[in-house]
C-alpha cells in the first residue's frame, strides 16, 4: 500500500512539473492589447499604388527595347529588367507596349506589338489575374521586410484584386478588334526555357489610344 502511494505520488509530481513547464494561462483581454496588429495588405497596396508604383510604371522598358536587350545579352537583360521572389526559372518584369488589337476574347486580348521588323503577338490577360507577377515585376516589395509568407501572398492578392476590380472593367467594356492600345504590365519569362512565343502580360495600366 505504501509503495503504491509513493509510486502514484511520484507520478503525480512528475506530471505536475511537466504541466507547470508546459502551459501558461493569461487573460485573453490582456493578451490582445499586446498582440501586434495584423498586416493590412490592401492598405499597403494602396500606399504602393499611389506612391512608388506610378514611377516604376513610367520607367518600364518598352517591348521593342526589351527584344533588343534580350537579343544582345540575355543574361544581362534578365538581371536588369526581371525579378522573382521565389525559386524556379520564372522571372517577371514590367514592360510597356503599344499595338493593334488582333482579337478579343472573354479571358484576354491579343495584341500585335514590339519591334516592327519582328512583331510579337502578346496576350493581355483581362479575366484571370492571379499569381505574384505584378508584385515581383514591380520590385517594390522586399522579402526581408516580411516575416510571414502569407503577408507576401496577401500583397499579390491585393494587387491582383485592384487590377481585376479597378483597372480592367472600364478597359474590357470598350476595347474591340483593331483598336490601338497602350499597356503597361507584368511580363513572365522562363529564363531556363527562353521563348518569346506565347507572351502573356498581366496589365497594371491599359488604355485605348484615340485615333
Amino acid at each position: 500500500m505504501a509503495r503504491k502511494i509513493v509510486k502514484y505520488g511520484l507520478i503525480t509530481i512528475v506530471i505536475g512539473l511537466l504541466a507547470y513547464k508546459s502551459v501558461f494561462i493569461v487573460k485573453l483581454s490582456e493578451l490582445q492589447t499586446v498582440e501586434p496588429k495584423a498586416f493590412d495588405a490592401p492598405a499597403f497596396v494602396q500606399k504602393l499604388w499611389d506612391g512608388k508604383l506610378p514611377a516604376r510604371l513610367d520607367s518600364a522598358i518598352t517591348l521593342d527595347a526589351l527584344q533588343a536587350a534580350l537579343k544582345s545579352n540575355r543574361g544581362a537583360a534578365f538581371n536588369t529588367y526581371f525579378n522573382s521572389m521565389s525559386i524556379g526559372n520564372l522571372r517577371y518584369g514590367l514592360v510597356k507596349l503599344t499595338g493593334k488589337v488582333l482579337s478579343v476574347s472573354d479571358d484576354d486580348i491579343t495584341v500585335l506589338a514590339g519591334n516592327s521588323n519582328e512583331p510579337l503577338t502578346v496576350k493581355v490577360i483581362t479575366e484571370y489575374v492571379y499569381g505574384n507577377a505584378i508584385r515581383d515585376a514591380s520590385r517594390l516589395v522586399d522579402i526581408k521586410d516580411f516575416v510571414n509568407t502569407a503577408d507576401l501572398n496577401n500583397i499579390s492578392e491585393a494587387l491582383n484584386k485592384r487590377v481585376r476590380n479597378v483597372v480592367l472593367p472600364p478597359f474590357k467594356a470598350k476595347v474591340k478588334k483593331d483598336d490601338n492600345v497602350s499597356v503597361i504590365g507584368a511580363l513572365e519569362l522562363n529564363e531556363a526555357h527562353f521563348s518569346l512565343n506565347d507572351l502573356e502580360i498581366i496589365p497594371v495600366q491599359c488604355k485605348i489610344i484615340q485615333q
Binding site: 511537466l18 513547464k21 508546459s22 502551459v23 501558461f24 494561462i25 493569461v26 487573460k27 485573453l28 483581454s29 493578451l31
Partner: peptide, 11 residues
C-alpha cells in the same frame, strides 16, 4: 477570457 499558451515542451 482565457488564453492557454504552450511552451515548446508543452506543444
Amino acid at each position: 477570457d482565457l488564453f492557454i499558451g504552450f511552451t515548446l515542451l508543452g506543444a
